Amino acid sequence: MSHTTKEAETMTFEESPETVAQALQHALLGDDLPDSFTLLGREWDLHRGVFPGTLSAATEVMASTVPYPKGGSFLEVGCGTGVISVTAALHGCASVTALDINDKAVANTIANAERHGVADRVRVLHSDMYTALGPGDRFDTIFWNVPWTYVEDDFSLSTDLHTAVFDPGYQGQARYITGAPEHLADGGRLLLGTADLGDRERLDALADGAGMRCELLHRVRRIEEVRVMEYHILELHPK
């Protein structure tokens, strides 16, 4: 039986793939997008074909709320523009590894690590989940701001940006959970960023199947263009 908390009951999955796809189309092709953006009091490079960190408040919320292991090692899956990985280095992580399946996001994160003077502490790898890591790569904290929009298993991920917001059948989140123990240091923390648009019941079932349970660490609300969004940081623990 899955571990379902009272908080889980507030999470829904109402956002339509069509609505999300419209935003992605603009991020891919919109000629009015700038080549940089301001977030967390800093300026960041934005490469075309990378999910912009300001389309929603998710990046700002997660970057501001993640409990970075000061003096330790941090792994981010799905680094996008690199805001969270660079912020981790700026907040005192001794080493940061950033992974993304989109090669444009890899280049974007490298550019932002250089821009903010932390390129010596941020390693960026083109990777499908953990595939680019070696067996000895272990981290004090692993984090992924997941693509919480649920679509069926046969949904076609037709662009690089689709992987930033769609997770067919939550297969990606299943791989994230089951593959993490191989790369967690002793006493390491496994974190997941999501939102109330995610399917928490399905996520809890995935965690349960991997012998874990989800604990809500932080809940942050932001008033956005069409609704109040509620962002969640979860920590996964062995049962």
Results as ranks from 00 to 15, higher is better:
S56F: 09
Q173F: 09
I142W: 04
V124L: 11
D154Q: 09
L28T: 03
V86A: 09
V106Q: 11
T159R: 05
R221Q: 13
D186S: 12
L206D: 02
G78F: 03
R200L: 11
V20W: 05
T149S: 09
V118F: 07
R42C: 07
S64H: 08
G92K: 02
H237Y: 13
S127I: 06
A89L: 11
S64P: 10
V146E: 11
D32Q: 12
G193A: 05
T19W: 11
F74K: 00
P17G: 06
A180R: 09
Y130P: 12
V228T: 15
G82D: 12
A107K: 13
L40W: 02
G136Y: 07
G49S: 04
P69A: 07
R219Y: 10
E230P: 05
I84M: 12
C79M: 14
T38I: 04
T12G: 02
R48T: 02
V151Q: 00
T54W: 15
E201T: 13
D196G: 04
H237R: 14
L192K: 02
E9P: 03
H218I: 03
V77W: 02
E15N: 04
G49F: 01
R222I: 08
G80S: 12
V228M: 14
P17Y: 00
P52N: 01
A111H: 05
N112C: 10
A58I: 04
Q173K: 08
T81S: 15
T12P: 03
R115W: 06
G169P: 14
L99P: 12
T149L: 12
P17H: 01
V106N: 08
G211S: 04
R219A: 14
F139D: 05
A132C: 06
G136M: 10
F13Y: 12
A8V: 07
S36A: 08
E225N: 06
T159S: 15
H126N: 13
L191P: 00
